[in-house]
Write a protein that binds this DNA or RNA. Structure first.
Lengths: 193, 193
DNA sequence: TTTTGTTGATTGACGAGTCAATAAAACTCA
DNA sequence: TGAGTTTTATTGACTCGTCAATCAACAAAA
C-alpha cells in the first residue's frame, strides 16, 4: 500500500483534523486517537509524523493563523486608501473561512494554549502584532494621535466578538460582526474630525 | 483535631484555591491534588466535600460571577442617571477585585468550560444576560434604536479586553480598559444626537 | 537493501474517585 | 456524670481507567 510522498498529505490531514476536533469539542482535551481517527489513520502514524501532540496543536495553530493572515493580505491587496483598507481588515476577520464554528472554537482554545506553551504564546503575539500594525498604518493618517487607542479597541472588539461567537451555539453571523466593527470605527472617526 | 463546622471553611478554601490554580496555570488541566494542596488539605477531603472536580470548577465559577455581580450592583446603587450608570458598569467590570491576574485567567478558562459543561454554559449565559439588560436599561433612554447594537458592542469589547489581558503577561491595567470602554460609549452617543 | 509508510500491541505515567481506618467532637439517656 | 453511640473531620493507600508515546514487525517502493 505504501504510496510515497504521503508525508505532506498525512500532515495536512492531521492538522485539519486537529482544528476540527478541538473546535468541535471546544477543548484541548482531545486525544491523539480522536484526531488520528478523524484523519483516517492510526495514532502511531500521527506520532510518527508529528512526534508529539503538542506539535500537532502548534501546527494547527499555525494553519489557522496563516489562513487568517492570507485572507487579510488578500483583502488589503485590492483595497485603496485607509478607509477601504480598514473595512477590508474587518471583513476579512469575519470572512466565512475564518469565522466558522470549528475555527472559532479552535481559536478560543489556542488562546488557552498560549497561556501554557511559549511557542503558542509567541505565535499569538505575532498575529496580534501584525493586526495592530495593519490597523495603525490605516488609522494614523485618519486620526493621528488617537490611532493607538482606536487600534487597541478594534483589536479587543474583534477578539471579543469571536469569544462570544464561540459560546453562542448559533451559526456564526459574520455580517453582523463586521457591521459592529465598522460602526465603532465610524463613530470614532467621524467624531475626531 | 476535628473542629466542627469545617465544611463552609473548607469549601471556601477549595473554591479560592481552584480559582488561583486555574488562573495561575492558565488551564483547566489542574489536578485535584494541586487544588487540595493549595487549600491545605488532602485530595480525599476535597472529594469528600465536593464530590467531583467538575463541582469544584462550577463552584469557583459561581464565586467569580457572583463577586462580579455584586460589584456591579454596588456600583449601580450609587449611580444616578443613565450616563453615570453606564460608567459605573464599566468601572466595576475592571475593578481591582475582578481584574486580577488569576481571576482574568480563570475567566478565560470558564469560557472554555462552558463549551463542554452545560451548567457552566448556563451560568455564563446568566452573566451575559444580566450585563446586557443592565446596559440596555441605560442605553435605551440615551440612544433609543441603537441601544441594542451598542450593548452588543460594549459586551464584546469588555470580554475582548479581558481576553487580551489574560495573554498580556503584564499586570492588568484597569484604568486603560475603562477609558477605552467609555471612549467607545462616548463616540457612539455623541454621534447619535 | 535501504528508505518510506503503516499499524497492533505494549509500556509507563498520571490522575479522579473510592475505601477503610482513625480521631475527636457532640449527642443520649440511665 | 459518664459509658456508649452517632456524627463530622481527615487521610493514606488503593483501584481503575485513560492516554501519550514507543516498539517490533510487516509491506512496498526505490
Amino acid at each position: 500500500m505504501p504510496k510515497l510522498g504521503m508525508e505532506p498529505i498525512r500532515k495536512a490531514a492531521l492538522v485539519n483534523a486537529t482544528i476540527v476536533e478541538v473546535g468541535r469539542s471546544g477543548s484541548l482535551d482531545v486525544t491523539v486517537s480522536q484526531i488520528a481517527k478523524r484523519a483516517g489513520m492510526s495514532t502511531a502514524l500521527a506520532h510518527h509524523y508529528f512526534g508529539s501532540k503538542e506539535a500537532m496543536f502548534l501546527a494547527a495553530m499555525r494553519q489557522v493563523l496563516s489562513i487568517y493572515g492570507a485572507e487579510i493580505r488578500g483583502a488589503l491587496a485590492v483595497a485603496e486608501g485607509p478607509e477601504a483598507r480598514l473595512q477590508a481588515i474587518a471583513r476579512a476577520s469575519f470572512s466565512p473561512a475564518n469565522f466558522r464554528r470549528e475555527v472559532v472554537g479552535a481559536w478560543l482554545n489556542f488562546y488557552v494554549l498560549a497561556q501554557t506553551v511559549p511557542e503558542a504564546r509567541r505565535l499569538l503575539g505575532v498575529y496580534q502584532g501584525r493586526l495592530r500594525s495593519n490597523l495603525l498604518a490605516c488609522l494614523r493618517p485618519l486620526s493621528g494621535k488617537q490611532a493607538d487607542s482606536i487600534a487597541k479597541g478594534l483589536g479587543a472588539l474583534i477578539d471579543g466578538l469571536y469569544l462570544r461567537e464561540a459560546l453562542s451555539g448559533q451559526a456564526p453571523d459574520g455580517k453582523a460582526s463586521v457591521a459592529l466593527v465598522l460602526d465603532y470605527l465610524n463613530a470614532k472617526l467621524t467624531r475626531g474630525r
